[in-house]
Amino acid sequence: MSLDIETPLIPNKHLLGIEGTTRDQIELILELTDRFAEIGKRPIPKVPALRGRTVASVFFEDSTRTRLSFESAARRLSADILTFSAGSSSLSKGESLRDTVEVITSYGADVLIVRHKMAGTPKRVSEWTDASVINAGDGCHEHPTQALLDCYTLKQQRGSLDGMSIGIVGDIRHSRVARSNVLAFSSLGAKVTLIAPKTLLPPSIERWPVDVSNVLDDVISDLDACYLLRMQSERHSKGLVPSLREYTKDFGLNEQRCKMLPKDALILHPGPKNQGVEITAEVSIDPRSIILDQVTNGVSVRMAVLFMLLGQHETYQKDEL
């Protein structure tokens, strides 16, 4: 494969969000992802593109999937991996966030993959390190690589997102996946509808590029893709919905409701699924479900992102790919 490594693919040093990323940049990442997806199918799915580079996964908040996905991506690119994991609480033991970041940077990390339960933390981290920073999910703010892999997965199925009608269903208020996807989907020309009870919608979203519905059954038959978000059980205890049972009844995708979804529509979920709440086991394996494709594509997208931020390196030879 050949890549023009003289041209910076992303003018930015960091990937902090879909916000601030242009349509052209998103499309370039998706195009590059195609090439990395091919590597994943080789008998030995490994290239030396990031040999000698160090990727630090800095997860202040627990994560299994995203961390595994990033670390697999880094390994396939032959990068070295540093792993930092701590509950956010370790910071309150006295070390400031800045201290933590400076220490990790001093181990020689070239990129920090940061997840934190609070919005904006990756941005703050980027101000205290020379390394690149990738936002792997910050509180209720953004999860840009999830959005990129979702776009890639939809594009894989449909060729283009232009004109698609995509419904995002569930706890949008607390969802970084929803925020990133609203920006990414609409940037690529899709029409986005947020579907949730009012208590699970963010306040003051009149100027977002979305339609809003409080009743899934009203809009489901118009959707080309139905993106279900994870419904966390504590939302009920905080009084945002009367009960999980009622939420499931009105917003869960079960076989019955699935019949209202157009035959060629797609079903997505960022995982981990709360089976029996927002989605039933039967629907998860419905032919329209592309949930497992999302997982597979996650690694390829993250390879593309890591390569773009780190790959333009003097020791890198483009014919090594």
Binding site: M118, G120, H141, P202, S204, I205
Partner: peptide
């Protein structure tokens, strides 16, 4: 403050 900015930034707001 809870409003357009808090929703956009993903920082929980107070009205």
């Amino acid at each position: 403050h809870e409003g357009e900015w808090s929703s956009f930034l993903g920082i929980p707001g107070q009205p």
